[in-house]
Amino acid sequence: MKLIAIGVILATIGFNAINALKCMQGIEVSKGDNNEVQKSDNPLEITECGATAAVSSTALLFAVKPSIISFPSGDYKCYHLKYEEKNSDTSTIIKGCIYNSLNVCDGKYSSSNTKESFCSQCDMDGCNSGERFAFDFKLLGLTLVALVAYLVK
Rank of each mutant, 00 (worst) to 15 (best):
N100S: 15
K22G: 01
A11E: 00
N87W: 12
K86H: 10
F62N: 15
C23A: 05
G141A: 04
C119M: 04
F118Q: 05
L142A: 01
D89P: 02
P66K: 12
M1Y: 07
C49D: 03
Y150N: 05
L61P: 09
V148E: 04
T47L: 10
A146Y: 03
E36K: 14
Q38E: 15
Y150L: 08
Y76A: 03
T12F: 11
D123Y: 03
P43C: 13
P66C: 14
I68Y: 13
S40W: 09
C122K: 02
N42Q: 15
E84N: 14
N87T: 15
K77Q: 07
N16H: 06
S117L: 05
K138G: 02
L44Q: 14
K115E: 12
A17H: 03
C49I: 02
I27Q: 13
A17S: 07
P72T: 11
E84F: 07
G141K: 00
S120N: 05
K153Y: 10
F71E: 07
L144N: 01
K108G: 10
G141D: 00
C127S: 02
L102T: 14
E45F: 02
F71Y: 09
S112F: 11
I6F: 08
I6W: 03
S56Y: 07
I9D: 00
H80Y: 13
Y99H: 11
I9V: 09
Q121D: 01
N128A: 06
Y109L: 10
I98R: 06
K115Q: 13
N100Q: 13
F133C: 00
F62E: 10
D89R: 11
P43E: 11
V8P: 00
A53N: 03
L44I: 15
A54M: 04
L147D: 01
N34W: 09
E45G: 07
T92L: 07
Y83P: 12
N128G: 08
T90I: 13
V29L: 04
F15C: 06
C23P: 01
N19M: 05
G50E: 08
N113H: 09
I4Q: 02
T90G: 03
V145P: 00
T92D: 09
E84Q: 15
E28M: 15
E131M: 08
G26T: 15
I6Q: 05
T90Y: 08
V64F: 07
S91P: 01
N16S: 08
E28W: 03
I94N: 13
C122M: 01
A63G: 12
A134H: 02
S110G: 10
T92W: 09
L144E: 00
S67Y: 14
S70D: 04
T114P: 03
C49Y: 04
F135S: 02
G74I: 06
M124F: 10
F137E: 00
S30Y: 14
G141L: 03
Y76T: 05
M24S: 15
P72Q: 11
F71Q: 10
L3Y: 15
M1W: 07
T143N: 04
K31R: 11
A5M: 13
D75T: 07
G14P: 01
K86W: 06
K2H: 11
S73V: 12
G14W: 05
A146G: 11
S101G: 08
K22T: 07
A54G: 07
L144G: 06
G14E: 00
I27G: 08
S129W: 02
Q38N: 12
